[in-house]
Amino acid sequence: MLDHTTALLAATMAAGTPLVYAALGELITEKSGVVNLGVEGMMLVGAIAAFATVASGNSLLAGVIAGGLAGMLLALVFAVLTLTLMANQYATGLALSIFGIGLSAFVGKAWLGMTVTGFQKVSIPLLSSIPVLGGALFQQDMMVYGSIALFALISLVLYKTKTGLLLRAVGESPDSAHAIGYPVVRIRYLATLAGGALCGVGGAYLSIVYTPMWVENMVAGRGWIALALTVFATWRPARILLGAYLFGGMTSLQFHAQGLGIAISPYLLSMLPYLATIVVLVVISRNPQTIRLHAPASLGKPFRPN
């Protein structure tokens, strides 16, 4: 039973990691006042770009970079449409997701059914020998550790530096930021691109580490769950981490259900993360005051300097 718990916890971390990358990426984008519903598409394109890179004989690191670049490229399309051409952010984000699904499926035909070898687990000395938790938390691959380092970095920048202050300011009132002389559109471009890159990396983790193979539409709604996570976290990084592992746990549960002696139809178990997303959204959104206090006030609203 203890072995199962350790395994489940370890799987939870791994399953949560793509969500950590993607949701932190979307957090950066949304902090600047831009909502990009294309997370699912960016993750998928990141996943196939990373997989194709690695399966062609390049290193895993090259794969991760390729995934990030692919996600960023898609985010660039979104940014041009919404920030320069003033298109509706919601519609454009949806288009990005639909396009990403189509593009990854199209490109991915050539790579169907292949597998690659993912990152090796790295044990952290001493810590990894802690009973139950050690095996779960400190015996992971580099990208899991990387996601936690990223979380620390983003928290630091967001709340302790002028860059972070500026990002929050632009998200709250682009008009004020413009009036005192900041290049709002450029800042939003950068935040959108950074967000896209992280979504791509999240997708890369799925295809070259977690699975590791290419399956059509393999992101399976995680992009949308990442979007829900930003709301669940009320735009705060620590809660994103928490939420991501919560959903990672739900996902892992289906695979470990039998081991834990749970006998429910796998179809119904598969619904669990999606059901949980709805529950979580309801619980958080119920209180409009919390949302109002923490949501970037200009979220989704177009801004055009004149």
Partner: peptide, 20 residues
């Protein structure tokens, strides 16, 4: 000094000043 203030409501006074 703008007629419609160019301030950020969720930030503190000192943070607002620092941005400028």
């Amino acid at each position: 000094v703008f007629q419609h203030f160019s301030l950020f409501e969720t930030l503190t006074v000192v943070e607002n000043v620092a941005l400028a």
